[in-house]
Design a protein around this nucleic acid. Structure first.
Lengths: 195, 195
DNA sequence: ATTAAAATTTAGTCTTGCCTAAAAAACAGG
DNA sequence: CCTGTTTTTTAGGCAAGACTAAATTTTAAT
């Protein structure tokens, strides 16, 4: 990973990222070579995986138990993911019946950090005529998720690619319910398990 | 409240408390007169009440839904109480069926900040022969709560004061199950709703 | 009323996390 | 292979919270 990419993705400045990378390297969470970029150590990956586990479990909790909709969960889960208690998270997992996927279709690591790595393909990568099951979304912003709700597209919806417009990457897709024309941006964000 | 009392109760130094009191005063959460002490404003009371609401609701959640025992909940609830989301807490309240008391018998404020103010009396304050229902504990340390568990004393247990030893304040009490001799420290920490 | 002790505040320091601006390194096109 | 541009790091600063030590105010005891 490059310093600038991290800064961009985190809404912070490159110099802050450099500072933090040094601290992560000190804690053995990342390898860092000045000017050459950084990468998580195995230790760092494990650590991150556990935070992802917590984030996604909390998202399931919010949707299943507290009637949140899938576009409302992210920011609250971002707070909850930092609560420190092994017992808390394992019991939460049990309460939710050990879910495998979060409300956006992303896999939830188990207590050992293992998770299913299903191959998912963006609609924009499909060949004309192929179809699949919506298994994940890339963008989880409220606006995008509400767009999907409006068009009755949700995880598990079967989608077929009818036409792919070479010029702008937009395409025509078909669900059980209707046909819909979507932009390349949307098509890049919808991940299918191809049938 | 005096600065030193706050510092003592919070495991911090008096000078840190002074700093923070100024900040609270700036935010209109406390009145603060140098050298004279401090007191929460109505605003501050409301704010604190909502944090107490969150803390106690999370405690109920941990015990009822996640199989925590009452001596394990405090430190996790101390983290959870700072999660910011009105919807989260109101939905949690609903999930738990709007409980009135936390696992230690303390009342839970409702969304408007109202809570039951039952009169509770420490065993050490009772007259010989009086009895009541255990309605709260003062100390919530693990050691104390486990002591109670060991002697099968829990919220709702009916307790009668048989003897009060004037010399050391210790006393003999009787529950449904047995008689027990307890120190003044214990007697100060058990609060009854007197019958 | 005076003064010693206790309580409280102030002054100055440290760490963490972030920022801006300047410097240094890497890279890319001629 | 050199030089201008981009990327990244360094240097220095700021705010929040906490601390120690010194100063100040309050309190209580003679």
């Amino acid at each position: 990973m490059s310093t600038n990419d991290i800064a961009g993705g985190m809404n912070t400045k490159a110099s802050s990222v450099t500072d933090m990378l040094k601290k992560l390297a000190d804690k053995n969470l990342a390898e860092y070579i000045p000017y050459k970029g950084t990468r998580l150590t195995q230790n760092g990956i494990n650590c991150a995986t556990q935070i992802i586990r917590k984030h996604r479990l909390w998202e399931v909790f919010l949707v299943e138990k507290l009637d949140f909709s899938w576009d409302e969960v992210h920011e609250v889960a971002e707070q909850l993911e930092h609560i420190q208690s092994r017992k808390l998270i394992d019991e939460l997992d049990k309460l939710l019946n050990f879910p495998k996927y979060d409300p956006h279709g992303d896999p939830i690591p188990d207590a050992q950090g293992n998770y299913e790595k299903t191959v998912k393909t963006a609609i924009s990568q499909l060949e004309k005529g192929q179809s699949g099951i919506l298994a994940g979304v890339h963008d989880t912003s409220t606006r995008f998720l509400q767009y999907l709700d409006k068009h009755q597209i949700e995880l598990g919806t079967q989608i077929q690619l009818l036409e792919l417009e070479a010029f702008d990457g937009s395409c025509l897709i078909k669900t059980d319910l209707k046909e819909l024309h979507i932009s390349k941006t949307i098509a890049d964000n919808l991940y299918l398990k191809v049938l």
